[in-house]
Write a protein that binds this DNA or RNA. Structure first.
Length: 570
RNA sequence: GGGGACGUAGUUCAGCCUGGUUAGAACGCCGGCCUGUCGAGCCGGAGGCCGCGGGUUCAAAUCCCGUCGUCCCCGCCA
């Protein structure tokens, strides 16, 4: 039907008679001659129509109708070449045009420069996906997935699929439940991650497993969180941290080499959790902007206002910020409970700002702004992270860095307290403790869990697992599960571990987030073909939706109360 | 669960603060002119339940209350 894709018609085809198929993208009629652009997945090509019959045929054809053009490729006259167009050196003289389908007028043009409302874009997602950037992103997504798969297979991994219909686990995120028709009153849960399955596969001797696994979590959404998302799930036996780190690094080396022809440095930087919290206040610092907090307790700790605080921290940025920007940042911090934000600005060799009399030029090595912040508890880290994050987003407006900075964060705490004061696992309860410390000082104890951070996003998280069923049982008991609960919830894992478990290690990489960062998209929605809104609504298909009474009866379900469901009119 | 921003023509926005002619613009759409356009150009035209519901008022796009939707943030996301 077609000789080649529109975007591939270059000078190679000069003089040849070809067929191309695609969408009528733009039309320019000048009297007795007409130009139009035919577009497909690969790009665009200009078609010239001079024949009177053909002119008539396309005269009133709406944009984005689909057609086939038969014609001859010719090089454009030198002055009419369009360097902005990839196929701009040539054009196709139409000899025949076949119209496959006539489009309705589009609610918006896919390549419109202006930002279309998310609501409109998602309702007509099939049109938004025609956007050039979207098409590039989804090609990139496919290529990244291919390189990941290829690299892993070359390293001896095999892909195994685990169930999506699984068992509800009350800890962690909320589950999406799937009612069972054959077992009324019982439910499957969509997997939040294949965690226990992947460990069991290790017991089954599949010592290098991977999977692009869909994960489902019924929590509130953000620009980097969707109810369903894809993770590259990896688990390996008989190795330690070093092996899994280099394995993951190799995947990224290949991605950057093959997609961007860029060498990235390995091994990636590493810092412990305690270090990143000390220097950045965050466990996922954006190291493209490597500004660190310093301890200013010795320098400013004696000031009356700071006397009651355990810690005084300060951070310097070589940028002079306006009063307004600083006020906005302070406002945000005050919303989070910070009493006050100190700062000094150096301009030339002049210092100004509320702290200028306490600091000298030696604290201000160059022109810029130094912020001072004080506090006593874990709130201080939070404030530090907000401060640093807000300042960096201001810096990005002036001087955005396009590079990529990876960081392994290791030695996470094994446990933490939840809002009710209960001790819970920081990572998950299958994470190996660093040492025996947890038996004495559980909240001080470290684990063998690690995160991979890229440009301030957590893109991966994993751990050395507990492979000894007795220790696993001990940890679960420590977390407050009684024997019956352990059996009910984790019995199948413990049983598996007790039949010869290898030491094993794993990680899950956030595939959507990785593609989002690599493609420079701002939201995870832009790298998922059919995403949900922030409220978890599928605007295109209209889900979630009510179902027939009959379906409910079959499942043995009765709805107690209904929330208004948005009526779809189109 | 809480906070903030937004919702006006097919699309993106202005108007709203300070209520008062016929609610404007750009792009798109329709018609006309035009043989080298490529964000085509020029001339003309159509197109609106101002998200929805209530209230205040002589009078509401504008003020108030509620509601629905979209986005962002906090909580939440082992």
């Amino acid at each position: 039907m077609r000789t080649d894709a529109c975007g591939n018609i270059t000078k190679v085809y000069k003089g040849q008679k070809i067929n191309v198929c695609g969408w009528l993208k733009r039309k320019r009629e000048i009297g007795k001659i007409s130009f139009f652009v035919l577009e497909d997945r690969e790009g665009e090509v200009q078609v010239v129509v001079e024949d009177e019959g053909l002119l008539k045929k396309i005269r009133n054809l709406p944009l984005y109708s689909t057609l086939k053009v038969e014609g001859v490729v010719r090089e454009r006259p030198e002055k009419d070449k369009n360097p902005k167009m990839e196929t701009g050196e040539i054009e196709i003289i139409a000899q025949n045009i076949e119209i496959f389908s006539v489009s309705k007028h589009l609610p918006f043009l896919p390549d419109e420069e202006k930002e279309i409302f998310e609501e409109t874009k998602l309702t007509y997602r099939f049109l938004d996906l025609r956007n050039k950037k979207r098409k590039e992103t989804f090609k990139l997504r496919s290529t990244v997935k291919y390189i990941m798969t290829k690299t892993l297979i070359e390293m001896g991994f095999i892909e195994i699929e685990t169930p999506y219909l699984s068992k509800s686990t009350p800890e962690g995120a909320r589950d999406f439940l799937v009612p069972s028709r054959l077992h009324k009153g019982k439910f499957y849960a969509l997997t939040q991650s294949p965690q226990m399955y992947k460990q069991i596969l290790m017991v089954s001797q599949f010592d290098r497993y991977f999977q692009f696994a869909r994960c489902f979590r019924d929590e509130d959404f953000r620009k980097d969180r969707q109810p369903e998302f894809t993770q590259l799930d990896i688990e390996m036996s008989f190795i330690n941290e070093e092996d899994i780190f280099s394995c993951v690094e190799r995947i990224f080396v290949n991605i950057f080499k093959q997609i961007f022809n860029k060498e990235i440095k390995t091994p990636f930087k590493r810092m412990t959790y305690d270090e990143v919290m000390e220097f950045y206040g965050s466990d996922k610092p954006d190291l493209r902007y490597d500004y660190k907090f310093e301890d200013y307790k010795d320098i400013l700790g004696q000031l009356e206002i700071f006397k009651n605080y355990k810690k005084v921290k300060s951070i310097f940025f070589p940028y002079k910020f306006s009063r307004k920007i600083i006020e906005n940042i302070e406002k945000e911090l005050k919303n989070q409970g910070l009493p006050g934000l100190g700062f000094v600005i150096r301009e030339g060799s002049e210092l100004r700002g509320p702290f200028k009399k306490f600091l000298s030029l030696k604290h201000m090595p160059e022109e810029g702004t130094r912020f001072i912040i004080a506090g006593s508890d874990e709130k201080l880290s939070e404030w530090c992270a907000i401060l640093r994050g807000s300042v960096i987003s201001e810096i990005e407006k002036i001087n955005k860095k396009d590079d990529f900075e990876f960081l392994w964060v290791t030695d996470f705490p094994l446990f933490e307290k939840d809002e009710e004061g209960n001790i819970v696992s920081s990572h998950h309860p299958f994470t190996s403790p660093k040492d025996d410390e947890w038996r004495k000082n559980p909240l001080e104890a470290k684990s063998r869990a690690y995160d991979l951070v890229l440009n301030g996003f957590e893109i991966g998280s994993g751990s050395i697992r507990i492979s000894d069923p007795e220790i696993q049982r001990e940890i679960l008991e420590f977390l407050g599960y009684n024997e019956a609960e352990i059996e009910k919830r984790f019995g199948f894992l413990l049983k598996a571990l007790s039949y010869g478990a290898p030491p094993h290690v794993g990680i899950a990489l956030g595939f959507d987030r990785i593609v989002m960062i690599l493609s420079g998209e701002k939201s995870i929605r832009d790298v998922i073909a059919f995403p949900k809104t922030a409220q978890g609504i599928g605007l295109l298909e209209g889900c979630p939706s009510e179902v027939d009474e009959e379906q409910l009866n079959e499942l043995g379900i009765k709805i107690k109360e209904k929330k208004n469901v948005r009526e779809k009119t189109d």
